[in-house]
């Protein structure tokens, strides 16, 4: 069973439908017991990182999430929550992956948010990117981005900013794009997540 953490984000329905299309059984839950027992966990999220973090705290979930040992995938703001700190709302996050979330640098002819399909460069092998072609396109919508570091699996560039599009540390993984809305390439990532050894 896949536990999708109910962080009140509005992309939750799309995530559940995407898992359904792949034949996975998923439950939307904010119950730490259910989350702990799940085979895999997905942490979705849209909106501001600080607000999403507040919701996790209200539900007493931060402790539960950081102690998970099964595969965990953060999506969009759910991925950003895995990092240490966000400029957006000056918020402390789960601090599972070191690094700070920053705002895109304004440049001429650069629209913010970064909204639309962009390609990623795979920098490291990882089960999440198994058989994924280099420069595959994914759908992004965000104004803040996670840094490139030793935990970067796939990187993406927007104007002069290069950021982590896919990260992983131990059992924790995250993607800045929306796999549930990224057509076949997005389904490929989700399938890899569902198929990796738990």
């Amino acid at each position: 069973m896949i536990a999708v953490i109910d962080s009140c984000g509005s992309n939750i329905t799309s995530v559940l439908f995407a898992l359904q299309r792949l034949g996975a059984e998923a439950t939307l839950t904010a119950d730490p017991e259910v989350i702990r027992k799940a085979e895999r966990v997905i942490l979705p999220g849209v909106g501001a990182a600080g607000t999403a973090m507040d919701r996790l705290r209200e539900q007493n979930l931060p402790q539960c999430i950081v102690s998970l040992t099964q595969p965990v995938l953060g999506i969009c703001v759910g991925m950003q929550l895995l990092f240490s700190y966000s400029e957006e709302g000056e918020a402390n996050l789960l601090d599972i992956i070191p690094g700070n979330i920053s705002h895109f640098t304004p440049e001429k002819d650069k629209t913010i948010p970064h909204m639309g399909w962009n390609s990623i460069t795979i920098r490291k092998t990882h089960p999440l990117v198994n058989d994924l072609p280099q420069d595959s396109y994914f759908y992004f919508v965000h104004s803040y981005f996670p840094p490139v570091s030793d935990y970067t699996i796939g990187a993406c560039s927007y104007g002069g900013d290069t950021f982590s599009a896919i990260v992983a540390r131990d059992n924790f993984m995250g993607c800045q794009f929306h796999p549930e809305r990224s057509s076949k390439t997005g389904a490929h990532i989700l399938r890899n997540f569902l198929e990796m050894p738990a």
Binding site: T13, S14, F17, A18, Q20, Y139, H178, E180, R181, K184
Partner: peptide, 10 residues
Amino acid sequence: RKVAKVIDIP
């Protein structure tokens, strides 16, 4: 909901 179920683009 029906659209959200079948399509995989935004």
